[in-house]
Design a protein around this nucleic acid. Structure first.
Length: 475
RNA sequence: GGCGACGUACCCAAGUGGCUUAAGGGAGAGGUCUGCAAAACCUCGAUUCAUCGGUUCGAAUCCGAUCGUCGCCUCCA
């Protein structure tokens, strides 16, 4: 098995990946809070995680992949003033919180499918795991890591000695109240809530009974509870967005390890943001791009996926229409070549491969494998792919096989690529096409070109081929 | 205020001490081929890696300073 190197946030450097159990690994990825659409920046992280998973599969690992869906609201801060995004979203849209969660979960999962993201072994919902979360809090309470304030049960971060290791937090430098008021009752600025009490004057749509009182779980506890339920107290890979490092993941480590006394996760991987000229794409800014918005503008969701392949997951990526167009052009060219190779392969059934080719093929595979195993260096992998595409010395069949092989990691759906069918071309267009063919035969090229222009105006494109004319919808 | 990341051609981007006189993609220019167009193919595109200084036989790659961009320290992928 080839070696795999990954940048581990916990170690603050690139490390060789060694699984806990040979040949397989557990992987937990933080999913979305489903109070709104996921924008393409959010989705970038899931594309990264998909590449990571596919890379492991490509190397022959068996992957147990868990992604959570946070369908319970959390306050926007640990204090009482914050709003619950789920409850706010529900009243905004005239839905119950449960309906809201279902609606956005559904769209999120469909978007991941459109982006050719392999589905996890299990989607785990926070609300389906309330007893597990309460159990974990009880464990922490029994071991003396908690205290109770007027608004909830808190984790005392001063009770553990390596708090903030993941983020290299300089706690003395943290500036509480920089943007939000600090609760008087919190013992340390880094303490966080495990369980929140429901407000006394208001009935929440989502609340549960617990030994501490009616309320709802804190934001971090769900991931610890679900990850450990499905992957065990100690597992291999945990990933999410880069924004989770200082808060969410730091707290997950603290509470998980405090309860079990074991190391929680070996490798922490984080995806960087998609940014716009004005900074990162974020929901709180109001305007944001969804997969559907790209489709409405005539892009294939995989055009966006291809764009994400261009740069390493750990580096921020600047979104611009120019970039997306560049990705679309490159991806379209790639698909065209695949179609060509398919045709050539079908025409020449007999293999023209020589032992020489075999060596070349193995060389390409090796190069590609090394690239993707080096902390997902996909752009180097793409360079290998283009080498293959352009290597005229290799038979089409071999090139196609290599592209399919690489696509196991890239996920560009190359096997499914097909020439656009002449799907229901209107009769009047077909008539014009025939007219043009006749004009061409009569060498009346002026007339032929006029008809081509006319057809184009009507939204169709004609391409002359050796054995006839092809008509397709303009894209 | 603290912590951190980044700055490679018109755009995206790999490379992090000698294999590289800096991959790959997009855009552009010129050409081949088809009546034209499309597709495809070929050729040309950074003596240079934000700037300045240092270390070294050797630096885009290491060190320091400066400038610039961005993120985190609320919720966020």
């Amino acid at each position: 098995m080839e070696k795999i190197y990954l940048y581990n946030t916990l170690a603050h450097k690139k490390e060789e990946f060694i699984p806990i159990k040979e040949g397989k690994l557990g992987m937990y990825c933080c999913g979305p809070t489903v109070y709104n659409y996921q924008h393409i920046g959010n989705l970038r992280t899931y594309i990264f995680e998909d590449l990571l998973k596919r890379m492991f599969l490509y190397n022959g690992y068996k992957v147990n992949h868990i992604v959570n869906i946070t369908d319970v609201g959390h306050l926007t801060s640990d204090e009482d003033e914050g709003e619950d995004k789920m409850e706010v979203g529900a009243s905004r849209e005239g839905k119950t919180v449960w309906e809201l969660a279902e609606y956005y979960t559904d769209i999120f999962i469909k978007d991941t499918i459109r982006l050719n993201i392999l589905q996890p072994d299990k989607w785990t919902k926070a609300t389906d795991h309330i007893p597990e979360q309460i159990g974990l809090i009880k464990c922490l309470e029994a071991k003396g890591f908690t205290y109770i304030t007027s608004d909830g049960v808190y984790f005392d971060t001063s009770k553990i000695n390596n708090y903030g290791e993941l983020a290299q937090l300089d706690i003395s430098g943290l500036k509480p109240g920089h943007r939000i008021e600090l609760s008087e009752e919190k013992k340390n600025i880094t303490d966080f809530s495990l369980w929140k009490f429901s407000p006394k004057d208001k009935k929440r749509q989502m609340e549960w009974e617990s030994t501490w009182g009616t309320g709802f779980p804190g934001w971090h506890i769900e991931c610890s509870a679900m990850a450990m339920k499905y992957l065990g107290n100690h597992f291999d890979v945990h990933c999410g967005g880069i924004d989770h490092i200082p808060g969410h993941h730091t707290n997950e480590i603290a509470q998980s390890e405090a309860c079990t006394g074991e190391k929680f996760v070996n490798y922490w991987l984080h995806g960087a943001f998609l940014e716009e000229e004005s900074g990162k794409m974020s929901k709180s800014k109001g305007e944001f791009l969804t997969v559907q918005a790209l489709v409405d503008k005539g892009y294939d969701p995989l055009d966006y996926r291809y764009m994400c392949l261009g740069t390493n997951y750990g580096k921020r990526l600047l979104f611009s229409w120019e970039n997306l167009d560049a990705a679309k052009s490159a991806y379209t060219r790639l698909k065209n070549r695949v179609i060509e190779f398919k045709k050539q392969t079908a025409e020449h059934i007999e293999s023209t491969e020589t032992p020489n080719h075999k060596e070349t093929i193995e060389g390409y595979k090796q190069q590609f494998n090394e690239a993707v195993n080096d902390d997902l260096n996909i752009s180097s992998g793409l360079a290998v792919l283009w080498d293959v595409v352009k290597n005229e010395l290799l038979p089409a069949k071999s090139r196609l096989e290599l592209l399919y092989d690489f696509d196991n990691v890239l996920g560009l759906g190359l096997k499914e690529v097909e020439e656009k069918k002449e799907d229901n071309i209107p009769e009047e267009i077909m008539k014009l096409v025939e007219e043009r063919t006749a004009a061409k035969k009569a060498k009346d090229f002026k007339r032929a070109d006029e008809i081509r222009a006319k057809i184009k105006e009507m939204g169709y494109e004609i391409v002359d081929k050796k054995d006839g004319v092809e008509v397709k919808k303009s894209s």
